[in-house]
Structure formats: structure tokens, C-alpha cells
Simulated assay, not measured.
Amino acid sequence: MAHFLSVAPDQWVPEISGAYVDEALTAEAVAFRIATHVPIEATKIRIPTFGGDPTSQWVEEGEDLDVTDATLDGIDVEPKTIAVLSKVSRQFFDDQGQLSTAVLAGQGRDLGRKIDAALFGSNASNTKAPAGLRNVTGVNVIHAGGTWSNLDAFAAAKFHAETLGEQVNFYAAHPDDALGLATLKDESGSIRPVLGPDPSMPTATNIGGVPVVVSEYITTGDVWAIPSRHLHLVQRGAVAAEISHEAYFGSLSVALRSFARIAFGFSRPAAFSRITTHSGS
């Protein structure tokens, strides 16, 4: 059902309007579903990175223990700004006396798409965008062959994470790859899919109990195994929506601007796996 936000030109409420954009953004962006959300108000945050546990030992009663340290470091994550600007007729405000949330929702959805594109892409050549998964060094790469023919590589990714004491919470794939995996059969000539039903998640696609999410911004032929506690989506402040009557003064229009400040932190790259059908990548 369509919703409308009653906003006269002189009664713009930034908090309410920003909430509409935020709702559409978080619903659209896969990143918000698979990452640990870290809200901040400061310019940046330092996230601890993990290299290994301290070493324990068996001892006699009263025996001195050897001192070992956890392998700890940190990464600085500074959110970058993603923004969108729309031009709306002043008549839309004056005659209707209300602002359709379709405008705000459309801005929010596009912000969400751009956030996913940043997460799953490589932003090495665009310093305005935050670093994404393709920019991270130390990620485990698993070659699955030239085509998706079985789920062995996914078992390898899952057990790789478990040997590090971690857990794969999501597989993230391009829709074409997700479809290819979902239509695999258990043997030649069979109609039985390799991916059997999971009674605990009857409406979700999953591999070995791990949910599969899809994004068009993932490179075809790659599937990411995501440990959510080590993927941090850092957001500075709330999603904002603003209005200006001056920007398009000569055309009897108003400007609607929405923006968010977002960046990603990868606190243990070795716990991530990129399962790929691309040779030598």
C-alpha cells in the first residue's frame, strides 16, 4: 500500500523524512543484512583486528605460566559520503500539500544499491568510495573449477572458517550463480536438486545450512563466504534528507537531497573466502 508523508513546503521534518530514506536504503542493501552494523558519531573508529589466540598450557600446581599475548592490531575506518539529489516541482508541494514517499524511497533504494556496489567491488581507483571486499588482502581463495558442478568448494569454505574458530554466516552470490547452484542435480539424469530443503528456513535458499543472499554487484563466477562478525558496516550519524527552495529558484522547483556516511571494516580477512570459477584469480 502506498504511504504519504504530509509535508507542506514550510513544514519539512528532516528526522521523519530521513527515516523514510533509511527504511528504503536498509531494505535494498544486502550489506545491511550480512554485516555487523556499527553506528558512530565521530569522524572515524578504530576496529580491533584479530590474528590469533593466546597459547594455553598444562601445568603442575604452583608452576609458573609462560606469558603469551593475543595477536591484536587495529584498522581505522572512516565513513565516506554517498549522496543523491532530486528536483521536484514546487507545484507538487503546493497543490498536493504532501510529499509522496516514493521520491524519498527511490533515493534510499539507489543509495542502498551504491553501497552494495562499493562492498562487493574494488574501489582502488575511486578514493571517494570506501574500500570493498576486492580491496582486502589475505582473503582465502577457493577454486571451484570452470563451472558450478558440485558444492565441494562451499564445504571447503565452511571448514576453513571453522579451523580458524569462525563461522560462515552468509554466502553472497550474483543472481546468475545463485540460480546455477540452485538448479544443480544430485546426479546425472536426476531431477533431485543438490540443495535440499531446510525446514528451519523454508523460504530461504541455503547451502549446508548457510543462507545465500544475492546482489547484481558481485562478479559473476564469484561467491563470497561471509563471517558477519568480521564484516563491519560503519555508519556515521543517521541517514539524512534535506530540502532547498533556493537551488532551483528560477524553475519553481525544490531540491531534495539525501545522504549517508558509510564505510566497511574487515577485521579478520583470513576468515573470508572467495569461491570462484575463474582460473588464476
Rank of each mutant, 00 (worst) to 15 (best):
S6V: 14
V7E: 06
V7Y: 06
A8M: 09
A8P: 07
P9C: 02
P9Q: 09
P9I: 15
Q11L: 08
W12V: 02
W12M: 03
V13G: 03
V13H: 13
E15D: 10
I16Q: 12
S17G: 13
S17I: 01
A19V: 06
A19S: 14
V21E: 01
D22P: 05
E23G: 07
L25N: 05
A27M: 11
E28S: 08
A29V: 03
V30L: 05
A31G: 09
F32C: 02
F32K: 03
F32D: 07
F32W: 15
R33E: 02
I34A: 00
A35R: 00
T36R: 11
T36F: 05
T36A: 11
V38P: 05
V38I: 12
V38E: 13
P39W: 01
E41M: 13
E41F: 10
A42C: 09
K44V: 10
K44P: 08
I45L: 04
I45E: 10
I47M: 13
P48L: 06
T49Y: 03
F50Y: 15
G51C: 07
G52A: 00
D53Y: 13
P54E: 04
T55A: 12
T55Q: 15
S56F: 14
S56I: 13
Q57E: 11
Q57P: 00
V59L: 15
V59Q: 15
E60Q: 15
E60V: 13
E60H: 05
E61L: 06
E61I: 08
E63D: 09
L65Y: 08
L65P: 01
T68A: 04
T68F: 06
D69A: 09
D69Y: 08
T71Q: 05
L72Q: 14
G74T: 13
D76Q: 13
V77C: 12
V77S: 00
E78G: 04
I82G: 03
I82R: 06
I82E: 10
V84N: 14
L85S: 06
L85P: 08
L85G: 08
S86Q: 15
S86V: 07
K87S: 14
R90V: 09
Q91W: 04
F92V: 11
D94F: 10
